[in-house]
Design a protein around this nucleic acid. Sequence first.
DNA 1: CCAATATAGTTTGATGTCGAACTAATGGAG
DNA 2: CTCCATTAGTTCGACATCAAACTATATTGG
Lengths: 146, 146
Amino acid sequence: MTNSDAFFSFFTEIGILAQLSQTQFERLMPDGMTVAQFTVLNHCVRVADGRSPATLARAFQVTKATMTSTLQRLEQKGLVTIHPDPADGRSKIVRITEAGRAMREASIAATRPWFEHLRRRLDESEVAALIPRLATLRSILDADRD
Amino acid sequence: MTNSDAFFSFFTEIGILAQLSQTQFERLMPDGMTVAQFTVLNHCVRVADGRSPATLARAFQVTKATMTSTLQRLEQKGLVTIHPDPADGRSKIVRITEAGRAMREASIAATRPWFEHLRRRLDESEVAALIPRLATLRSILDADRD
DNA sequence: CCAATATAGTTTGATGTCGAACTAATGGAG
DNA sequence: CTCCATTAGTTCGACATCAAACTATATTGG
């Protein structure tokens, strides 16, 4: 552990940050809403609705098994619908419901005060400057996945 | 989601990075060793041995329940011992075993090639420069925990 | 056309993580 | 000394996540 210390320390910080932020988000969100579930709903609204589970899994860089699990819970809560894809017998189509849209909005509203709190304590442009660097790292790690 | 976009994007990147890096580490580690378990062993060697579960939980910013779970698995594998603390009837003392030390070394050796690989692709001093910023964020989030 | 390969989605089991609840012990105030 | 607040550790249930294994379907190459 000599010259690997920087990377090790870096990933340790990342791991803890991820955990703490996720926990904070989830405390604020309504009705036991989770970050994983929120990001699916958000994706449906902001990127595209009617995608397949595999496409969603790839978008978030999780396994298909993970996405199946999250989608099942969302469907159970009536926040998405999942139907067979007529164009591909193996596939499904995931669509957000009106309740899903409402839940997404409620979640955003619930976390807004926390973002404001962060913005008073941090230089947002500095945080924004970190994003492309993190994204670079992420793409390297994602490439290492296969 | 107007001026909160930077923070939201930032935490999204952090979450994915944490996941991908953890997965990569765990693929490389021997015998189903996990990052959570490794960090406990590493802490015993590099920081202090003979600490209590609560102290360890605070060090990693996880709940006591989480630490109990991880420690139980480590004990089961013979990598730590856990005994009552004679100075405090509620508390325990966690110590690393020789097998635990060996496992830590094996884990470090197993992940070394991956760190080398990262070092060939990234400017390590740039990564190192990110650490204090991440640590600042982490301390803010940690303070928000209570 | 057919066989081999790849892909989609699901299930299962293991792990980490949290919140809630609990029992037992400690520390501080009156 | 007694009582109350705090702390330590554990259990339980819910969720996300991965790997492995599986069935069904689509795609590709000969």
